[in-house]
Design a protein around this nucleic acid. Structure first.
Lengths: 203, 203
DNA sequence: GATAAATTTAACTATTTGGTTAAATTTATT
DNA sequence: AATAAATTTAACCAAATAGTTAAATTTATC
């Protein structure tokens, strides 16, 4: 009797993911998760003994996809502007697929930073190689000199922040016109690339 | 008998502000606010009938300072790059004085977007004049052409996001070395200015 | 000193919510 | 059909917490 069990476990994880993302750990209700999974609370606790255990299962799952694997790109033998383009693409691909990530992670970070810091240490990329590749490009005169950390923070900021602020941007800049907002976000891919390239290219 | 009353009301508002900022509306406890204000829960409810009323008082107070008044700058008769510099300065001044703002606002936004949207409509600046000033600078050939909204979002992202992500940046990039982190944030003022100018200057 | 407002104390209510339990029922496996 | 696992039902417990209340006490004001 396993087919049914597997299915239920998946249903619970899917439901919990939706509810936790929308409401956060504290805001989520076990009853709501049970309802969303179309089971009852007793069964929910039968599968995951506590809210904490269920949340951790979800959270690990989410964190694992939250850091795009940019190492491969970084070491490719192409010029720096191409690397920048690929990195921005991989961030935006991730964010378009999971637009809730910035908001969710920031919320949970605020609630208990230590949890996320541990997971960053466990799954998050090591920034050191990235900084080195940037420094080398600077030494070769491909891009202007600046503290590499600033370049990383600038790129990540321009990619991530608009998704966290999406509803505000929608309201303030586009009066909640959905089409205008969607094309704006589509445009950002090229806009951010060009913006960064222009800002750092040596000339 | 008013001196005492005023003082207590101030004490409550100050305490509530601290607790609400740290824990958010849902996470904050009336008992904790009472403790922080060094009064008891009965008196807290004597001044502010409900948690909701108290939160609204604080929230309005916070939102009012959350939007730097950049209109004056925008209409000054100086070249565009100077305007950009002043705008970035005014954002960073605000954020350095109130580093908790991005996290707090995002959290509450996530909880109930409508509340913030109403307040943006009430106190938030109108973005239209800003967009126009940018467009004019583009028409004059002072800066390259792009959709002005992108420029605004890019600048705001690079200013605001690092504060929301400060603990993560501290850990990932500086291994929680406080001095290194502080100088990094001090540097950003000039870094962001130059980054933006280089990205948009016509040449 | 009398008065009224401010404040404390302490007990209480009502609600929400995570979690438990035990018994009944359904479903899959042999 | 027999068995064991999965699921439901429904009631319950315990803790946390917003909010209330009434009486006592302190403090400012006249």
């Amino acid at each position: 009797m396993n087919a049914k069990k597997d299915n239920t476990e998946e249903k619970i994880l899917e439901a919990a993911k939706n509810v936790f993302i929308k409401k956060g750990m504290e805001g989520a209700r076990m009853q709501e998760i049970a309802d969303e999974a179309k089971i009852n609370k007793a069964l929910l606790h039968y599968y995951f003994r506590s809210k904490e255990k269920l949340f951790n299962a979800i959270f690990n799952q989410i964190i694992k996809i939250a850091f795009p694997r940019i190492e491969q790109v970084i070491y490719t033998d192409v010029d720096f502007r191409t690397k920048v383009g690929v990195v921005i693409d991989s961030y935006l691909d991730l964010l378009i697929a999971h637009p809730y990530l910035p908001g969710f992670i920031m919320k949970e970070f605020n609630r208990d930073p230590s949890v996320i810091l541990k997971l960053i240490a466990k799954y998050g990329f090591n920034i050191q190689p990235v900084l080195e590749v940037i420094s080398e490009a600077m030494d070769r005169g491909e891009i202007i000199k600046m503290k590499p950390e600033h370049l990383v923070v600038n790129i990540v900021s321009m990619c991530v922040f608009p998704f966290a602020a999406r509803p505000a941007i929608s309201f303030v800049a586009f009066r909640d016109n959905k089409e205008a907002l969607d094309s704006f976000f589509e445009e950002r891919r090229e806009v951010v690339k060009q913006f960064v390239i222009r800002a750092i290219e040596e000339r």
